[in-house]
């Protein structure tokens, strides 16, 4: 029972961490507080669902199509919808407020399109629903696969951000956008890239989540909320923080649902969130850095 809950919690937590890494990139580097973030996740889930059940593409191939497409689409969204706000904003705080309003609108547009296409019903598909034996407990192969992919993508992102010049440049924009210009970094271009990367990550997360959870056109906002909580818990712009906070959240939810009451998961989530904010307002790992 414990090992089973542990595995389930780690899988869920890995998804949260991956999704939160994308949001922390968008917010930390581009200073866009993206309220439509979870909609991209759901849209990717629907896209891969359609590719699998109608067009016959395996969800892993689907991910190889959906994530790069989301990357490009998010880049275009940044250039067309958000760049005018960036040009207009006098300060980064002003941009934050403007971006909340703009992406709040975008949320309803994306959600509306999905509601028209798919209605409000819950969807799922069966892919690799084979029981696998791990440490004496059975777990569906699709969950393990999703976890493995989340780990690989998260690790690749972390290495890319900390070990390459381009990644370090993105972190530099997050910690000090004015000084970043002084080392020849085009801050607007960097912001567009970070926003696009975040979109690609959340789309990959959506594909992975759809392999083992049911979804409908309305649940985007749940993922946006949870990603936000993980980002704030871990410290804005902090990749390791997002990983640890995501795992804490996934494990807490699973343990509470298993041993106390599934109805209390949300309450547990917010309790942990509040406790961390009271003890460490800057998040577990503080701002910026890694």
């Amino acid at each position: 029972m414990f090992v089973e809950a542990l595995l389930t919690g780690i899988t869920l937590g890995g998804m949260y961490a991956l999704v939160a890494m994308g949001l922390t990139l968008q917010y930390g580097v581009a200073r866009i507080m993206n309220l439509s973030y979870g909609e991209i996740l759901v849209a990717a889930a629907f896209a891969v669902f359609w590719l699998f059940t109608v067009a016959g593409f395996n969800p892993l191939i689907g991910m190889a199509m959906v994530a790069p497409a989301a990357l490009v689409i998010n880049w275009v969204i940044y250039r067309i919808l958000l760049l005018p706000l960036v040009r207009r904003a006098k300060t980064r705080d002003a941009l934050e407020v403007d971006s909340i309003l703009a992406t709040f609108g975008l949320l309803f547009v994306v959600q509306g399109v999905m509601l028209v296409l798919f209605g409000g019903a819950y969807y799922s598909y069966s892919f690799l629903a084979i029981p696998v034996d791990v440490f004496g407990v059975t777990i569906a192969a699709n969950r393990l696969l999703a976890l493995a992919f989340a780990a690989v993508i998260g690790l690749a992102l972390y290495i890319g951000l900390t070990r390459t010049r381009a990644g370090t440049a993105l972190r530099a924009v997050a910690v000090d956008p004015v000084s970043a210009q002084l080392v020849a970094i085009d801050v607007r271009a960097a912001a567009a890239i970070a926003f696009a990367l975040g979109g690609g990550l959340v789309a990959a997360g959506g594909v992975l989540v759809s392999m083992f959870l049911t979804f409908n056109a309305n649940i985007g906002v749940v993922f946006t909320m949870k990603a936000l909580i993980v980002v704030i818990m871990g410290g804005v712009g902090n990749m390791l923080g997002a990983l640890v906070a995501g795992l804490i959240l996934g494990l807490t939810e699973t343990f509470v649902a298993t041993w106390i009451d599934p109805g209390l998961t949300l309450a547990a989530t917010y309790s942990i969130f509040l406790i961390i904010l009271l003890v460490r307002p800057q998040g577990l790992f503080g701002r910026g850095g890694r």
């Binding site: 530099a172 002084l182 970094i185 910026g288």
Partner: peptide, 19 residues
């Protein structure tokens, strides 16, 4: 205007970000 959160090496490496 240095990047306080980054290491000295990273600061210098970013200095050479210009093509």
């Amino acid at each position: 205007g240095i990047f306080g959160e980054l290491t000295v090496r990273e600061n210098l490496m970013l200095g050479a970000y210009a093509k």
